[in-house]
Design a protein around this nucleic acid. Structure first.
Lengths: 142, 142
DNA sequence: AAATAGAACGAAAATGATTATCACTACCTA
DNA sequence: TAGGTAGTGATAATCATTTTCGTTCTATTT
């Protein structure tokens, strides 16, 4: 049992879920494509090459589960589908520059928030026309 | 012709679009509900009370048009539907805190980026578990 | 190793927001 | 007033995602 697989099994065990070949395979695909931001459909197509019997619903279910378990992060680039990437173990978050013309996604690290806007425009030669910042968590009522 | 209506007509004229009663009404509804983040469906339901003959497709078309013209801002709170709010005339942007439990949306102003994370947690009594920052614009290839 | 209960699966139908189609209407211009 | 075109309403189509349901697999206990 590979290193990644064992780690997955531990997480699943801890949360009373079972290790299946499908879950293992999907994790491998995500690991093999680190840096990509794959959609469920794209993952499905890659996964099918190795296990033609897998169902699209399983891919969705697994990605949803991985999201809950903190294994993957769900991204929304406003292109009509959710995208997924492995959550990093270190606590260095990274954010995304999304080109509204060609759809290119450029990653950059957290750094000092104050420098973001102006510096990043130079650094990536990216003309910012709009940005949004989201925080997720719990409000005072929850 | 009301103030808002005249302003709308000017923008539409400039861009070779026509002022229609539907467009005028939808603008009014948005203005009457400032601070809300309405979905197309919600807007449709409100609009229907004043003009029962209006079609849902028209609401979508109008909101899309308003988006292109910079009249409304399209928001994505990851709740499976696009939401809309009037673009502010001053250039004070505001961002959103979204509660993943109750769905509450709390607005806050731009201010100094460096203070964001820590200060906002205190200010709104909001426990941040996750955040994402998006910039929209044009990359070097575009 | 067989038995078993419940988790997980695959195929396909259902859902739900959004978009496209198309015939009809309203408005502007000649 | 007639003609052309933008805009509209109803409805069908799309497409990502979710749900359903009968079957298969996993882990655990005999």
């Amino acid at each position: 049992m590979g290193n990644k697989t064992q780690e997955l099994k531990n997480i699943l065990d801890t949360n009373n879920y079972k290790l299946t070949s499908q879950r293992d395979l999907i994790l491998q695909i995500l690991a093999d494509n680190e840096g990509e931001h794959l959609s469920a459909e794209e993952i499905y197509n890659i996964v099918k090459q190795r296990d033609s019997g897998i169902g699209l619903a399983t891919v969705y279910r697994t990605l949803e589960l991985f999201g809950e378990l903190g294994i993957v992060q769900q991204l929304n680039f406003d292109d009509n589908c959710r995208r997924y990437e492995l959550e990093e173990n270190n606590n260095e978050h990274h954010h995304h520059l999304i080109c509204i013309d060609c759809g290119a996604v450029i990653e950059f690290n957290d750094q000092i928030l104050e420098e973001f806007e102006t510096d990043l425009e130079k650094k990536y030669d990216f003309l910012v026309t709009e940005h949004s910042i989201k925080f997720y968590g719990y409000c005072e009522n929850c």
